[in-house]
Design a protein around this nucleic acid. Structure first.
Lengths: 248, 248
DNA sequence: AATAGTATCATGTCTAGTCATATTAGCAAG
DNA sequence: CTTGCTAATATGACTAGACATGATACTATT
């Protein structure tokens, strides 16, 4: 059978068939017509009811499964999953882009830079053996010459030897790494803390002011690349994350 | 041609062919052999070099494209993308599960409950017209009878009429909603703040102590379901998120 | 030289079928 | 009642080929 379907009235812009099917099935699930635990009809049956090839249908089911709506098991069939714990995608941009996007002038100010063998603290942060060569960096990100965030970073020089040549006096190490070094895995920890005297001074805020703390560790295939701790004064930054089931 | 390939020595457990291909191509990209901007060979060429059908190869490319490694455009071909801004998946469990998982005894204590027409504040939080019927809830989550988090919630009764019947004196509204009401979209905002006197009293912490603040809005297909603001004392909670390119 | 029309080509989608494999149900033996 | 075998079955992977679509490159015209 050739692809001779008409564009139905509900799809103003022609969607691929598999996406139509995907959306139709998703509808059944999120409206509760097919409740959690419900076993859907077999692929051949569904394919027949949608008047398409089994592979087209399978593609739709595959997408639903990838998004966690259903579980497909051979022989057992396909069943509707219980609603997931909330999940959300957090995009963490580099600070320079963030500040520029907000229409402010960006500036990085290096407070200290030291190439050294990993101290116990460095080793724990980076998750590397002690005495691995690392680069320790401490600096402030500024927006319109006011402190915006404090950065403390450890770079694994064994994994990123080029960093030894970089001075990082004016350009932020975040962007430098981001554009040069690929990564496969990242871990973030987000917390709050009261500014210590030292932190307060660097950020020009009152002592004890609440700060948002983002810690990030990045790996390239089991190889630790960098650890960074970013501190934002509470009234200067807010992380936002949006998550949409399906669509994008 | 039938599927007569031998299991190669690098794949101890037989992986699907398309995943093998996916991983092989990903390798080229993350090691920089194919740098950003590089145009890959055409699908028929790659299919030939991997000795598979074009569709199998296309499936591998499709997965890479979905993960943001490449961009595929008709006629133009497929090109390697620049590294993405860091993205991470944040799983936000309901607090009851969180506390139970940590081996503590969970308890929810309702501080106030009021069904009312949306005040301007409620309307802004929920993103609904003013005077929509809403349920306002204020309560404390406790772990081993010590305060763990403060919750302030507004539920859209027009979208969740059943909530009117619920007392929420002991069971947390979060879990109740999570298990009953499906959702399609969620937005999170994460920030830090200093505890006000009222907050400090509810959480039994010192005034001004830094707290992690999570605000969440949930929709079911353009229909606002609930808004919630959770406050965690800084030393009691840390959000963690991990992201792996590829694999799962 | 600028522009409009056209040919071409790479990806996008789909089909109808084959073979592979995990899992279950049912049955038989202990 | 339990254990282990066997057959049935639903999904998983794959193929070879067809047509659709959109972007580009080329060509002819003004």
């Amino acid at each position: 059978m050739k692809n001779t379907r008409a564009v139905t009235d509900t799809e103003s812009v022609s969607m691929p068939r598999y996406r139509e099917i995907h959306d139709a099935l998703r509808e059944k699930i999120i409206t509760g017509v097919w409740p959690p635990g419900f076993k859907l009809p077999s692929e051949p049956e569904l394919a027949k009811s949608f008047d398409c090839a089994r592979m087209t249908l399978s593609k739709a089911l595959g997408a639903l499964a990838e998004r966690g709506f259903i579980t497909r098991r051979r022989r057992a069939g396909t069943i509707v999953n219980a609603p997931r714990p909330q999940e959300t995608v957090l995009a963490i941009h580099d600070i320079e882009a963030e500040i520029s996007a907000a229409g402010h002038e960006y500036q990085y100010l290096c407070l200290s830079r030291e190439a050294r063998l990993a101290t116990p603290g460095d080793a724990a942060a980076l998750n590397v053996p002690i005495e691995t060569p690392v680069l320790f960096l401490h600096g402030v990100h500024r927006a319109d010459s006011r402190p915006h965030a404090l950065e403390e970073r450890v770079i694994n020089l064994a994994a990123v030897p080029d960093a030894r040549q970089e001075r990082f006096t004016k350009s932020s190490p975040g962007r430098w790494l981001l554009t040069r070094i690929p990564w496969t895995e990242a871990e973030h920890q987000i917390s709050a803390l009261n500014a210590s005297a030292a932190i307060a001074e660097c950020l020009e805020i009152a002592r004890n002011k609440a700060c948002l703390c983002i810690e990030r560790r990045t790996w390239l295939k089991d190889r630790s690349i960098t650890y960074v701790r970013l501190l934002y004064p509470c009234d200067q930054h807010k992380l936002t994350a949006r998550f949409r089931h399906g669509k994008a």
